[in-house]
Each structure stands twice: as structure tokens, then as C-alpha cells.
């Protein structure tokens, strides 16, 4: 083979190999690290898988926040005003976490139906609502009015 062609072929083979490897690794990494979002109604209806890292969000139910007296464990309920889900979190909550405010939590759903969060995000100013939470609230609201 002509040396230039040979060089070109090597480069092309190298690129294709590299590309295939990159695509394979990326899709593998993607599959391992995707976190799906579920709203409280979906979780209460058993649509969310247990034991897998997922995201869940809604409004923190008024009067539901209870602290453990000896540790940083805190329990609260998150609602979309249709159904609600119990959450447990150990650690420091964000500054804007409060009852009646929107939150998004990352964690695992236990077989007991309780959501154990390892990360809790609250909105960053009072006029802003995480789009996921807004959408699930809208959905729940339309469902409630439809059932009436």
C-alpha cells in the first residue's frame, strides 16, 4: 500500500476505534448515572422503583418537619397537594428549606415507602420554583379538579 494511504488508514482506524470506545463508555456511564424525577403521587402509587437513586420533589408539608434530638436526622413530608411522601435526611438542610416551600431531594425509596434523601436542594430565592416541582404541582392540581 502507498505509505500516505497507509498512514491515512491508520489514522482513520484509530479515530473509529477511539470513537466507538468513547460512545460505549459514555452510554454506559450515562445508564449508571441517570436520576429520574418522580412526584409524590407517582411515588405513592408505586410507580417509582425502590432502591434506585432517584429524585423526588414537591412542597414541604406544613407542620411535618421533625428533628431527631440527638443527631442531624430530620423527617418531613413532601406533597403535591394530592398525595405525599415521607422523607428522611441526615445532614445540614439548605438555608431556604422551610415548611410550605418547594424542594427537590435526591435519594432512594425504601421498601417501607419512605424516601431516604442524601441530598436536598431548595430554591434559591423566594420568587423561584424548581420547574420540576411547578410541573408536578400543576399536574396534581389538574387531577384534583378533574376528580371533583
Amino acid at each position: 500500500m502507498h505509505p500516505t494511504r497507509k498512514k491515512r488508514l491508520t489514522i482513520i482506524l484509530f479515530l473509529i476505534g477511539g470513537l466507538a470506545l468513547a460512545v460505549g463508555l459514555t452510554s454506559y456511564a450515562l445508564r449508571q448515572n441517570i436520576n429520574l424525577f418522580y412526584n409524590p403521587t407517582q411515588i405513592a402509587d408505586g410507580e417509582a422503583p425502590a432502591g434506585v437513586r432517584i429524585r423526588a420533589g414537591g412542597m414541604v408539608e406544613k407542620g411535618s418537619v421533625k428533628r431527631d434530638p440527638d443527631s442531624l436526622k430530620v423527617r418531613f413530608r413532601v406533597t403535591d397537594f394530592h398525595r405525599s411522601v415521607a422523607m428522611e435526611y441526615t445532614g445540614i438542610l439548605p438555608d431556604l428549606f422551610a415548611e410550605g416551600q418547594g424542594v427537590v431531594a435526591m435519594g432512594r425509596l425504601m421498601a417501607s415507602g419512605e424516601f431516604v434523601a442524601d441530598e436536598v436542594l431548595a430554591k434559591h430565592d423566594e420568587n423561584y420554583m424548581p420547574p420540576e416541582v411547578q410541573e408536578s404541582l400543576d399536574k396534581a392540581a389538574s387531577r384534583t379538579s378533574a376528580s371533583r
Binding site: N33, N35, L36, F37, E135
Partner: peptide, 14 residues
Amino acid sequence: MGRLSIGKPFFDIT
């Protein structure tokens, strides 16, 4: 097609 997020582990690994 669903709401999902891709977190730190994906970026760290790749």
C-alpha cells in the same frame, strides 16, 4: 420523555 438529571458521578467517570 421524562424528567431526569445527570449528576456528578457521570462527569467524574467520563
